[in-house]
Design a protein around this nucleic acid. Structure first.
Length: 590
DNA sequence: GCCGTTTTCGGCCCGACTGTTTTCAGTCG
């Protein structure tokens, strides 16, 4: 029973409550949805928390849901959930995944046509719509029948928010639209917000805020965007389009005087906004994207506008919160107390330790594209104080031991020469060494004499179970020269989830033996994930941020790694590559 | 059903848009 399975069960329970009596069960519905969100955000399996007796550490899980979870883990089902959902055909639930369908519409159609089969319900409904059977129903019509056909079609094609893209792709799409929007003279500001501004690892849609005193003009112009496939909706102050390629773009307009409110609202997250609005209520105010409604001395309500976010947060009695923190994981409470951490920034970074040059090391994996000199030049341009070369270790199957010694010796000479010829930047002699399936490193102790230290990482036999993988990683990290665990979860965004590790054990080991975890800044990895960054630094584990560059251009990706650190609330002091060269090298030898 | 810098009881975000409606329900974020 995975966290995803549990979250789905909770969402289905919420939907069943909605169908039965939305008003009566209003707060149960919210409770189950919140619990589902929280479980999806966990960095450990809920089942592991159950075994450790720590279920009540999950936010949104109180005594009742905890009891249900225990029943779920011990018996595989929950009587209460069966009771709640028993009058709802199981054919309802797959429809809830389709945008445009909520519990009411799904239930109405499934009941009307007596659909029973959850495996065929999507195609069953599609056929009914094609035959014109939906339009005659009370409350439906030709238009909604056509909408249903389109919803189902786009769901099959995974268009809109169903496909999440990595950050650079979303930034590129957003930049094009922003450039287009700024050509309209009455648009005084156009900014990309939402999960893009919060720098989430993947992006489901692009949210854009526009400042203009002529909202109709901005909306018409936006909905005429040449790269759109179709207009999803178009109203007085907001609109959505679907781009060719499948991404959805939402746009909202406010006058410049209320732009701060709009920035805040559209940046989200949803749960952060709810927390702010609940806080506003306690202060006798009502917060929305238009401003704050406040009760005046004469008893009348008045809308107060905010042109900047800083003023808005101040009006709510708190300090401005960096977008990366706005996930309702405690940031609002800290902002009220003026105790937000000072997050690490890109300009704090003094070096990059995971660089693959094209030096002919005859590696087990891929080489980089550029010379060591070119990579150093780039590092200098970025203003770094030091750069660590960490090509993959020489392939063991293709070389004798002596051949490997001589490759590493030659490489050391090369790096020594670079060290003496480069006055503006310090060079560190590293390697990215595989951790083999049995936990051994593929190269022997003599090899490490040619290195300052090494990164270690997993590249093979990824389907190992959590316990064995943890042992394997710890075995690899235990070599005195192994200082950094690179791309620790092995995930590839949108491709594979990564292997499971016992993070408590990994964190403890890192603390005790002076090892660091890498935040790999490659936008396809972003690994360590933000949620684990937060856990790690809470434990006091040190991190480094590396780009894993195979090309000089990749070194610009550092910003994505920094954003992951910021999403994990990392301060400058949590990141070792903010240290000066001398301080860092001292740690490397610790 | 959860939760606490007014509370262990009494709260629980707010507004936009669409389609099918003559005033609103459903969905979305």
């Amino acid at each position: 029973m995975s966290n995803k399975d549990i979250a789905r069960i909770f969402r289905n329970v919420a939907a069943a409550y909605t169908i039965r009596d939305e008003k009566k069960f209003r707060f149960q519905i919210i409770a189950y949805q919140k619990a589902a969100d929280a479980i999806m955000q966990l960095t450990t399996e809920a089942f592991a928390l159950y075994k450790d007796g720590k279920l009540d550490t999950i936010p949104g899980v109180g005594p009742t849901i905890k009891t249900h979870l225990i029943e779920l883990f011990t018996t595989g089902k929950v009587k209460h959930f069966t009771d709640v959902t028993k009058e709802v055909s199981e054919a309802v639930f797959p429809l809830l995944e389709v945008p445009g369908f909520g519990p009411k519409k799904a239930y109405r159609l499934v009941t009307e046509f007596k659909l029973k089969n959850s495996k065929t319900v999507l195609s069953d409904l599609e056929n009914l719509a094609k035959k014109g059977k939906i339009a005659p129903l009370v409350g439906f019509g030709e238009k909604s029948q056509a909408d249903i056909l389109r919803f189902l079609g786009e769901y099959k094609d995974k268009k809109g928010k169903l496909t999440r893209v990595v950050l650079p792709y979303a930034f590129d799409a957003a930049e094009k639209i922003l450039t287009y929007l700024k050509k309209l003279p009455t648009v005084t500001e156009a900014v990309a917000l939402g999960s893009l501004r919060r720098m989430k690892s993947t992006i489901g849609d692009i949210d854009i805020a526009v400042a203009s005193n002529k909202p109709h003009e901005a909306i018409s112009y936006f909905t005429s965007y040449p790269l759109k496939e179709r207009i999803i909706e178009k109203g007085d102050i907001s609109a959505s389009i679907l781009l060719i390629g499948g991404m959805q773009v939402d746009l909202m307009v406010q006058p410049k005087s209320a732009f701060g409110s709009l920035l805040q609202h559209f940046t989200g997250s949803k749960n952060h906004n709810i927390k702010l609005r609940e806080h506003a209520l306690k202060l006798g105010m009502s917060l929305s994207e238009k401003g704050i409604k406040q009760q005046m001395v004469n008893g009348k309500w008045q809308m107060v506008n905010y042109d900047t976010e800083e003023k808005l947060y101040k009006a709510l009695g708190m300090t401005w919160i960096p977008p990366e923190m706005r996930e309702d994981t405690g940031e609002v409470e800290l902002a009220i107390k003026n105790k937000l951490p000072k997050l690490v920034t890109l300009s704090d970074i003094k070096g990059d330790l995971h660089i693959h040059s094209n030096y002919p090391i005859e590696p087990s994996h891929d080489l980089g594209n550029n010379t060591m000199e070119a990579m150093l030049k780039k590092a200098e341009n970025l203003g770094y104080e030091y750069l660590g070369f960490s090509e993959h270790n020489p392939s063991v199957s293709m070389h004798t031991k002596n051949a490997i010694y001589s490759i590493l010796a030659r490489r050391k000479d090369k790096i020594e020469q670079l060290k003496s010829s480069n006055k503006n930047i310090r060079v560190i002699n590293l390697l990215e060494t595989d951790i083999l399936a049995n936990g051994d490193l593929p190269i022997d102790d003599k090899c490490f004499e040619y290195l300052d230290a090494t990164l270690v990482s997993i590249h093979s036999v990824l389907s190992t179970n959590k316990e064995d993988m943890t042992k394997r990683v710890l075995a690899g990290l235990s070599h005195p020269k192994a200082k950094i665990l690179s791309h620790p979860t092995g995930r590839l965004l949108n491709q594979r989830p990564g292997y499971e590790l016992d993070w408590e054990k990994i964190f403890d080991f890192c603390l005790k033996h002076h090892k660091a975890l890498e935040i790999n800044a490659s936008p396809l990895r972003l690994d360590l994930p933000d949620t684990l960054v937060k856990d790690a630094i809470q434990k006091g584990v040190k991190l480094v941020i590396d780009t894993d560059s195979h090309d000089a251009q990749h070194m610009d990706m550092m910003q994505y790694g920094v954003s992951v650190a910021r999403r994990g609330w990392a301060k400058k002091s949590d990141i070792l590559t903010t240290l000066s060269y001398n301080e860092f090298v001292t740690w490397l030898k610790s």
